[in-house]
């Protein structure tokens, strides 16, 4: 029998993301999607943020990888939910195979399809070792955090470790008020991103 992976004691997803947002003050590109695309704009707004919504599930990591390959001098962060990652676990292999080192994947693992109302993913009752999967795929840095104070204390250092990096954050479900509201229209965001990147 699979072992239940208890995420009820996970850290607050809002506070976990606030740690990342507080560290992203420079030239990093941040790609959010699904739940994080709704939470992040309430924490921080930057022209280099891409709130990938409407998205295709599992598309955030490849989108971020493309940006990382195109902008080798910048760090790129992809913030993905576990449901999205499960749709394309192979994307972890694609990342490593591409040779990109300027990419960090932050996995928000709550075992839920959050934006559709909180249904369980197939992994919700299983102890999936996502950091182990990433390590096996070849990520030189692959870590997980369950405790907010630990994550807060180590995040800045973790983001300087050799890339590509994979960071699993075990989080609880987002408060409903953070899942409401729309993101700016995607074409508008992308035009702003290209302007910020000084691309004609």
């Amino acid at each position: 029998m699979p072992t239940r992976n208890d995420r009820s004691s996970g850290m607050s997803v809002v506070e976990a993301l606030r740690v990342v947002a507080d560290l992203c003050c420079g030239q990093q590109i941040v790609v959010t999607n699904q739940g994080s695309a709704r939470i992040w704009p309430k924490l921080r707004r930057r022209p280099l943020d891409v709130h990938y919504n409407p998205s295709t599930m599992s598309g955030a990591i490849p989108l971020a990888l493309g940006l990382a390959l195109a902008q080798r001098h910048r760090e790129v962060l992809a913030i993905s939910g576990d449901g999205s990652l499960l749709m394309s676990l192979g994307s972890l292999v694609t990342v490593v195979g591409s040779g990109a080192t300027n990419l960090t994947i932050v996995l928000l693992d709550n075992g839920l399809y959050e934006v559709t109302g909180g249904q369980e993913t197939p992994a919700a009752r299983m102890a999936i070792d996502y950091a182990g999967i990433a390590r096996a795929a070849g990520f030189p840095t692959s870590l997980e955090f369950r405790d907010l104070s630990d994550w807060r204390a180590r995040a800045a250092d973790v983001l300087t470790l050799p890339g590509p990096r994979f960071i699993r954050l075990v989080v609880s479900a987002a408060p409903a008020e953070y899942l409401t509201g729309s993101t700016p229209p995607l074409p508008e965001q992308l035009a702003g991103l290209k302007t910020s990147l000084e691309i004609a």
Binding site: V50, T56, S58, G59, A60, I61, P62, L63, A64, L65, G66, L67, A68, L69, A70, Q71, S88, G90, S91, V93, T94, G97, S98, L190, L193, K194, L197, I199
Partner: peptide
Amino acid sequence: IRVCREGEAWPLAAGLHLGGQ
């Protein structure tokens, strides 16, 4: 760039395009 699944190819190409490639 080799992808594991065709569904990765389109957003990966999108990122490359947005990044000026």
